[in-house]
Design a protein around this nucleic acid. Structure first.
Lengths: 345, 345
DNA sequence: GTGAAAGCGCTAACAC
DNA sequence: GTGTTAGCGCTTTCAC
């Protein structure tokens, strides 16, 4: 690195042979080289501390085995679970993954996208928080292979979708069946597809059970953008609990947009001496591992995160070689996990 | 990607000019090109959906702005905090970071190391879980720039170290001052420098306060390797609690090697009806954000994670241009965070 | 201000 | 079995 490193040419000179031969043995191409020469080359390479330069190789062969995954926030344990799945599959199939954290910043997301393309990655797996998908659309049009997950996207492509609406419905229905009718929906601005669907599910459940919407019970903090903080969702939840407590008429149950928010809400509620689930029931969303660690353990909606990661990676990698499976959509279903944060009214 | 994309050569042809000119305008080199030609080139590039090929560029210029960070387990929130710091600095200074998760597998770590080197990264920030640092030493010898953090390393290089021993001491001293004398040390095999130091701190505190070591109170699960699981440390903690409860003589306090383990221990204890901190006090290590979410909130030792990430990135980037600051070691100090999981005996 | 051409490190025809 | 050489996409002298 510092000292300019030996090239294949140096090795060839040292071993008194040609670069072709060196390349043949060093890239173990299976090409037949006499044992003696082979040894000489190997020795020379060792002697000169030769390290192959992938850049040269890639320029020549176009054999790039990188894929990128772009996520909005690695600090929410939801995403590491996804990444785990992606990496496992990638490794099995001989791909490397470049992980990009967009920090919920559409501009950064676009930059990453472009930069990955320039790096010649074979494809990208993305949870896009861009509202219009402009960059994404442009890049896909010019041939970029992608699979969208987590956040749905406004154009046809490979997708791993999750039935957020049903998830929201399940969560709220669970509360309703417990006897609750004053149910708050709590989270962040509905500026992502997943959140909109969650809200739609909330509405649907209300409607089905003949409960009219109380707008006061829909609390969406605007803070989001201001916080460059790993646990902003948690902080947001605490804040939201505060606002809930200021309502004249208080809900008896709360559906939070994700687990981290739900945990924050519970924490915030504690400050006011409100007990969960005795006084108020809370259900979260995602089933991150933390949700079973907190007190009370969180009732929530499971997303098969690791599996989603695996599916996404498989879908992407398959679509690379197999042009016909284009614009596939794989949809996953939510399950309700009942723990201790919800209670009969 | 799919359709072979336009090269600078195509653009030149389309704009009826030379590749040199195209390069000049497209890489905004500041090189003077007539306005008219410039426009033609820009148009051609747009028309042909030209995307620069970084591989070609890099091969020529050697201007690579990638750095790698290698960590053992992205699912432990400790590491995302570090990565956050690294990425912030990297972005400020125009570097990209390639994140590698070694999954606590020395072999994978070596592979990543080699692969990053071949990718020509400018340097790597690493928490190495290799016992002998063999690969690392070899690569550093042949010129790789690194900064080691989290886990100390057996040879001189840039380091961000943390005073684990003092951290362990502080944790145990806190327990002793609360009146505890039967204090367990609980975690995973002492096969990493950080853990050894933690244990040394435990021993030191015991000694200072005239408490003799009870070997039965040192519980190190061997499970680690078997589990390819995001929350293995938590599971490990639960398991460890079980083993503790089987002891004839039980400790009154527990020092766990990290927060996730501590949280697992508390969880495991609950199963036996043991209350923390009334029956047993527990202190963790790291101060990950989860530790304030659990019940009881965890008493723990703070590591300035985000700052460590920033420092590591700064140290690395500086050492790239400034050859004289070689083998710098920056040491950070622990602080005790007292919450609710510890209690007077 | 513009273009021809060399060359970064590597691989793969192609010749011998 | 081995070597020569062209060329991947790009930048950058060096002429003009």
């Amino acid at each position: 690195m510092t000292i300019k490193s030996a090239t294949i040419y140096d090795v060839a000179k040292y071993a008194k042979t040609s670069t072709a031969t060196v390349s043949r043995v060093l890239s173990n191409s299976g090409y037949s080289v006499s044992e003696e020469l082979k040894q000489r080359v190997l020795e020379a390479a060792k002697k000169l501390k030769y390290t192959p330069n992938l850049v040269g190789r890639q320029l020549k062969t176009k054999e790039i085995t990188d894929i990128a995954v772009i996520i909005p926030n690695i600090s929410n344990p939801f995403y590491p679970s996804i990444v785990l799945g992606v990496e496992d599959v990638a490794r099995e199939k001989g791909y490397n993954v470049l992980l990009c954290d967009s920090f919920r910043n559409p501009k950064l997301e676009s930059e990453y996208l472009r930069s990955m393309l320039q790096k010649q990655v074979k494809g990208v797996i993305i949870s896009s928080i861009s509202q219009n998908n402009k960059t994404l659309i442009k890049l896909v049009e010019s041939g970029l292979n992608i699979v969208a997950f987590d956040q749905d996207v406004t154009f046809p492509c490979n997708k791993i979708t999750f039935d957020y609406k049903k998830g929201g419905f399940l969560a709220v229905e669970h509360l309703i069946k417990l006897g609750h009718r004053k149910i708050a929906f709590v989270g962040a601005p509905l500026n992502r597809p997943s959140r909109k669907s969650l809200y739609a599910g909330y509405l649907k459940a209300l409607k089905k059970y003949g409960i009219s919407l109380n707008e006061e019970f829909v609390l969406l903090n605007e803070l989001e953008k201001e916080i460059h903080n790993e646990i902003y969702e948690y902080k947001n939840g605490i804040e939201l609990a505060k606002r809930l407590m200021q309502l004249k008429e208080k809900p008896t149950a709360i559906f939070a947009i994700n687990d981290l928010t739900a945990i924050g809400v519970i924490q915030g509620l504690k400050t006011y001496g409100v007990k969960v689930p005795q006084d108020i029931s809370v259900v979260g969303f995602d089933n991150i591992f933390i949700s079973e660690m907190v007190e009370p353990p969180l009732t929530t909606i499971e997303q098969p995160k690791y599996e989603m990661g695996r599916l996404a990676a498989n879908l992407l990698i398959e679509s690379l070689s197999n042009k016909k499976n284009k614009n596939l959509e794989i949809s996953l279903k939510p399950t309700l996990i009942i723990r201790k944060s919800t209670h009969e009214l």
